[in-house]
Design a protein around this nucleic acid. Structure first.
Length: 275
DNA sequence: CTGAAGACCTGCCTGC
DNA sequence: TGCAGGCAGGTCTTCA
C-alpha cells in the first residue's frame, strides 16, 4: 500500500488523533505478521507524546514515568492500515493488533498480506537498530541532493529506477513515485545509472522531491486499498502521468505509455519523452 | 562487491 | 459461474 507520501499522511493523521492518549491495554489476534509480534505490554499505562516518521517507518514515542521514552516502530508493509475507532466497534477483516486507550477509543491495525512488522524499544536504541542503520537519506531533506545522488550513480550499471528505489541510497521512493519522477525528469527507467549526466541527475532529484511533496499535499495515492486514518481516500492517483497507464496516450506527446518489467516489478514510461 | 530473482501472503481482476 | 493465472504499493535473502 504505502510509499513515503502515504506513510506521511498516516503519520500526521495519527498524531492529530492520538497525541496525549494513554494506552490502557493491547491485544494481538495472531502471533506474527512478517516477523513475530513484540510484547506490547511495556506500553500499557504510557501516553503517546508524538508520532514521527523515518523512511516508511512510523515512530510512536511514548512518555514513560521513569524519565525515558519508549518507542514503537511500525512498518506497514504493502497493505497495512491504521484506524482509530471507538472500542465498541467490532474487529474488521484482517485486524491483527489493537490498542485500547483510556478515553474509550482504540487504534486498530489491519494488514491483509501481513507484510507489516513492528518492534518496541527504548528511544536511544533506535539509531543503533539494524532497520535504521540500513536506511539512506530522506528524499525531502537537504541531504538528498545532486551531489549525493550523482556520487551514488558513478560506476553503477543497474537501471536508474532500481537505484532510486534502493532504500540504502534514498528512502521512500517506491514503484509508483519512481515511475512518476523519472517521467518528470525525462529519463528512461532502464538507463544505466552511471551513464546519466550530472545535469539530468539534478533534474531527477528535483522531480523526486516535487513528486513526493505533491503526493503528500494531495493526501497520498489511493490505488486499490490505501485509505487515510479517517478511512477517506487520497487523491494523488488522479495526477499520474505514466503509472498504471500502459497503452494510454502520454499527456505531453500522445505516444502510447509502455510497460516493462525491471527487477520483477512493472515500470511504466513514455518512449518518446524519456531517454 | 553488484545486480537479479525468489520468497513472504492474500485479494482481486482477467480470461478461458 | 468457476477457476487458474497473473498481478499488486516493500523488504529481505539467496544466488550467480
Amino acid at each position: 500500500m504505502p510509499e513515503l507520501p502515504e506513510v506521511e499522511v498516516v503519520r500526521s493523521g495519527l498524531e492529530g488523533l492520538l497525541k496525549g492518549e494513554k494506552v490502557l491495554s493491547s491485544q494481538c489476534f495472531r502471533s506474527n505478521l512478517r516477523y513475530p509480534l513484540p510484547d506490547f505490554s511495556s506500553l500499557h499505562g504510557l501516553s503517546i507524546a508524538c508520532v514521527k516518521r523515518r523512511s516508511k517507518y512510523l515512530l510512536f514515542y511514548f512518555n514513560g514515568d521513569e524519565g525515558f521514552s519508549r518507542l514503537l516502530v511500525w512498518h506497514l508493509g504493502m497493505t497495512g492500515q491504521f484506524h482509530v475507532l471507538d472500542q465498541s466497534v467490532e474487529a474488521g477483516p484482517h485486524e491483527h493488533v489493537r490498542f485500547d486507550f483510556t478515553d474509550g477509543r482504540s487504534l486498530r491495525y489491519r494488514d491483509a498480506r501481513r507484510f507489516g512488522y513492528a518492534e518496541v524499544m527504548l528511544e536511544h536504541e533506535w539509531p543503533q537498530h539494524k532497520w535504521y542503520q540500513a536506511l539512506g537519506v530522506e528524499p525531502l531533506s537537504d541531504h538528498f541532493n545532486v551531489e549525493s545522488l550523482y556520487a551514488c550513480c558513478q560506476g553503477r550499471k543497474a537501471p536508474i529506477k532500481n537505484l532510486i528505489m534502493d532504500a540504502s541510497v534514498v528512502v521512500g521512493v517506491g514503484n509508483i513515485y519512481a515511475a512518476e519522477a523519472l517521467f518528470l525528469a525525462g529519463i528512461h527507467p532502464a538507463r544505466a545509472a552511471g551513464r546519466i549526466s550530472k545535469k539530468r541527475i539534478e533534474a531527477l532529484v528535483l522531480a523526486i522531491k516535487k513528486t513526493l511533496a505533491a503526493a503528500i499535499k494531495a493526501g497520498g495515492s489511493s490505488i486499490s486499498d490505501f485509505v487515510k486514518v479517517d478511512g477517506k481516500p487520497g487523491y494523488f492517483a488522479h495526477c499520474f502521468n505514466v503509472y498504471g497507464r500502459e497503452g494510454e496516450a502520454c499527456e505531453q506527446c500522445k505516444s502510447k505509455v509502455l510497460r516493462i518489467t525491471q527487477a520483477g516489478r512493472s515500470s511504466f514510461y513514455c518512449p518518446s519523452c524519456q531517454h
